[in-house]
């Protein structure tokens, strides 16, 4: 067990990651294609477009909306969007006076299958430290200014529940198709730091 100070470390993070892979390959612990298959999932299949499809359907289908808010896991499973870090899903309903925002103050927990892997800023120390304590200020810095009557409700992802935000459907989208609606539901909208816009 090393207790050496960090600055005594001449190897780089990339060298250490590759060394770990190489040692495991040398020990024949890495099945053929295992890493490639997982990387494909992480880079392509777990994607915020998945969450956008869920939200757009909830905006246009009242029965699905009811299911999503009652049993988010079952609703997302209809699309096949469950799996690692998405096994118990809860959708958070925004209202004209309530804005939900998701964080993981202790690490980075995110609803991977529905939102995709978390972005760097979400895992950053500023967001993890500050959102729970000064949510309105953090949202303002991110470009989302909320009216005074809107309450900020922060959800700290500290156990196995994985969240997505169901935002208020923006005005001016009354005749939009599900496909059009999906385009205004971005990853940041699903995390809760942005509002969907019809513009």
């Amino acid at each position: 067990m090393s207790t050496s100070a960090p600055r005594a470390t001449p190897s780089t993070p990339a060298e250490r990651a590759r060394a770990l892979l190489q040692v495991m390959k040398n020990r024949a612990l890495v099945p053929d294609g295992y890493i490639e298959q997982l990387t494909q999932l992480m880079e392509h299949q777990w994607n915020p477009q998945n969450g956008a499809r869920v939200v757009a359907k909830a905006w246009t289908d009242p029965a699905f909306r009811e299911l999503l808010l009652r049993d988010g896991t079952a609703a997302c499973a209809q699309f096949g969007y469950t799996g690692p870090q998405g096994e118990y899903i809860v959708a958070l309903e925004d209202t004209p006076t309530l804005k939900n925002v998701i964080v993981c103050s202790l690490c980075s927990c995110t609803n991977w299958p529905v939102l995709g892997l978390p972005p760097e800023w979400y895992k950053g120390f500023e967001f993890r430290a500050r959102l729970v304590r000064e949510g309105r200020t953090v949202l303002r810095e991110l470009g989302t200014e909320l009216p005074a009557e809107v309450q900020v409700k922060v959800w700290d992802t500290t156990a196995e529940t994985r969240y997505l935000v169901l935002p208020v459907r923006p005005a001016g989208t009354e005749h939009w198709s599900e496909e059009e609606l999906q385009k205004c539901v971005t990853k940041d909208v699903l995390i809760g730091v942005a509002l969907p816009s019809a513009g």
Binding site: W121, E126, F127, A129, R133
Partner: peptide, 15 residues
């Protein structure tokens, strides 16, 4: 980190 003070502004703009 939750609630720890002293960190600077968010280095991200939504969307």
């Amino acid at each position: 980190l939750g609630g720890l003070q002293g960190f600077g502004p968010m280095q991200h703009q939504a969307n």
